[in-house]
């Protein structure tokens, strides 16, 4: 915040724009309302319900091992869908958040206002985050309804709440990256496609290559870090700041090395992704020209 924002009385008269710290939540509120009323919100909510219904049907059909314990159930159901819900939410609400301002020319409406570019970026990020978190909540409600059916209404493990918090951290990181991609291009489609490809397949592929070919812990890949969302339902849980290496012999000479992120380590990696991508996206947006 610079000196200009400390003056409360405008010597020229007229209206004084609020401080940036006040403008950000205001803009986030208006943007959230825009998301909430949009067709994409309804479509995504419908998709989340469909994912929930499919998982409900799968659990109902196979029951057995899945509903053997409530931890196994929540681990399978939540772990099976939360990744997809987060990536879809990020794509729907963040994919065109910045690029769309250029492509649809809505940016010219905002950029004529006395507001910092960073305030626009952060305000839009918060709105997209809230809209995405609502989708996550919707998925959680479907899960909890299933859980209540199988295990009774009072048997919700604390691991579920903890995993939900981890999912919110992962959402922050994914949205950070989505906003970065959206800032890189002036065409929304690139942001959508890049986010979807990277988070649905790309990072997993890189993680597999690093693990199986180079045999190093893929700590720099976010799909490795986000595995802790499902990991908290396992027994025992690695709560540490370092990953665990497991070597399994798959023949007389061949071995399979697997790495499991510690919960602390995963959280740190996701937070690092959030900060790095958000700062890079902000840096780009500050320099982007509305040509």
């Amino acid at each position: 915040m610079d000196a200009e924002e400390h003056a409360t009385v405008d010597p020229r008269g007229g209206y004084r724009a609020p401080r940036t710290s006040v403008q950000v939540p205001k803009l986030a509120g208006y943007q959230f309302r825009e998301y909430f009323r949009s067709r994409r919100f309804v479509i995504l909510a419908f998709i989340v319900v469909i994912i929930g219904v499919i998982l409900t049907a799968v659990v109902a059909h196979f029951r057995g091992a899945i509903v053997s314990t409530n931890l196994a159930f929540y681990g399978s159901f939540w772990g099976g869908g939360v990744d997809l819900v987060i990536v879809l939410s990020a794509v729907f609400f963040g994919g065109d958040a910045i690029a769309g301002e250029f492509q649809n020319k809505t940016g010219y409406f905002l950029m004529g206002l006395p507001i910092r570019r960073s305030a626009v970026y952060i305000g839009k990020y918060i709105a997209a985050y809230l809209a995405s978190a609502l989708m996550l909540l919707l998925f959680l409600v479907i899960l909890v309804m299933n859980g209540a059916y199988y295990f009774g209404p009072g048997l919700f493990p604390w691991e579920l709440l903890f995993s939900f918090v981890l999912a919110l951290v992962y959402l922050a990181a994914v949205l950070g990256a989505t906003f970065l991609f959206s800032s890189l291009f002036k065409t929304s489609a690139y942001g959508f496609v890049l986010t979807a490809i990277l988070f649905l397949f790309g990072f997993s592929l890189i993680q597999d290559l690093l693990t199986s070919l180079v045999h190093i812990e893929p700590w720099m890949v976010i799909s490795y870090a986000n595995s802790v969302i499902g990991e908290v339902f396992s027994n025992p849980v690695n709560w540490g700041w370092a990953g665990q290496t497991t070597t399994t012999m798959i023949g007389p000479r061949e071995s399979l090395v697997t790495y499991t992120a510690g919960v602390g380590e995963g959280v740190v990696i996701m937070i690092a992704y959030f900060f790095l991508t958000t700062l890079a996206g902000l840096w780009l947006f500050e320099r982007e020209e509305f040509t």
């Binding site: 610079d2 200009e4 924002e5 405008d10 020229r12 007229g14 209206y15 004084r16 724009a17 940036t20 309302r33 825009e34 009323r37 949009s38 649809n104 020319k105 809505t106 940016g107 010219y108 409406f109 004529g112 206002l113 006395p114 507001i115 910092r116 509305f290």
Partner: peptide
Amino acid sequence: SRKRTLEHAGVLIESPEIYPS
């Protein structure tokens, strides 16, 4: 200081689009 200068200016550039909802 973009913020300070645009406080006193009303701006219409490039026929902007308004959020449709």
